[in-house]
Amino acid sequence: MVVPFVYAFNILNLYFFMFRIMVLLILKTKFERERTMDGIIDIKDLCFRYSQENEKLDLSHVDLHVNEGEWLAVIGHNGSGKSTLAKAIDGLIEPESGEIFVDGQKLTEESLWNIRKKIGMVFQNPDNQFVGADVEGDVAFGLENQGIEREEMHIRVKEALQVVNMQDFAKHEPVRLSGGQKQRVAIAGVLALRPKIVIFDESTSMLDPEGRMQIISLIKQMNREEGFTVISITHDIDEASLADRVVVVDDGKIMGDSLPEELFQKGNELIDLGLDVPYPQRLKFELNKRGIQTPSEYMDEGSMVNWLSRSILKN
């Protein structure tokens, strides 16, 4: 009979079809995993010196890997080379040797402009970054430079100002803004260009405490909600504590790569690395000096408050 044969054939065919889909799915996930392993930034054996007369390298055999969507904090004392590293990634300085890959593309003279479109940089002093006559004009400046159409420009400026919560200030003059607000406008200018990576080079260090907290929570929002890859070069312990990973730069070399909470256990050593000692650590140190034993593991502020109040209030 013909009919059962057709059934049999169809079932076989179906099995075969399903098998093919499974193989494809497995291959696809494997491929995707490999892609993310590539990282959005890969630095291989990078060396740089500012002047040929310098005996010492200003960046010395740096290897660094940054994953897409990651928040990486780079710490180190003044003059350690951390800002130089950021400049190298953006192609602002030319390495002596080594390679930099950004989003799968090798950084060369030819690829430079394409790569810079993928990277936004926010610097320390908000006053040095203002070019427009009003907030809107300032955010539009980078877009004008790239020859973006006027209509598209309007949309992007509006969007960017919304992300940094400065839409109500579109027509304001920069002089009337606080430091934190100016820095938010600078960030909007960067966002309007739709980069994949945003590098913050000590962007909170000149702000008052309120402005500082605003920018830190904005960085967090950009990373966690908007999916930007963030590199923050910082001396700020609060900023570093929010990162996924902290890299320590000293003397132009990468000296450490760890989770924030691992790093914070170092106590007073952190001062030499260009960071403050987290408050609970400092308090522990003072308590130990007075003969009070404290738990040895790292505690953040919340757990330190809990531990202290429990120990005091139980008797």
């Binding site: 308590l287 007075r290 009070i292 005091i312 008797n315």
Partner: peptide
């Protein structure tokens, strides 16, 4: 200051 706080906590903590 942290010294003042540690001083006070040392008084309050079981010795």
């Amino acid at each position: 200051t942290e010294k003042q706080l540690a001083e006070k906590l040392a008084e309050l903590m079981p010795q």
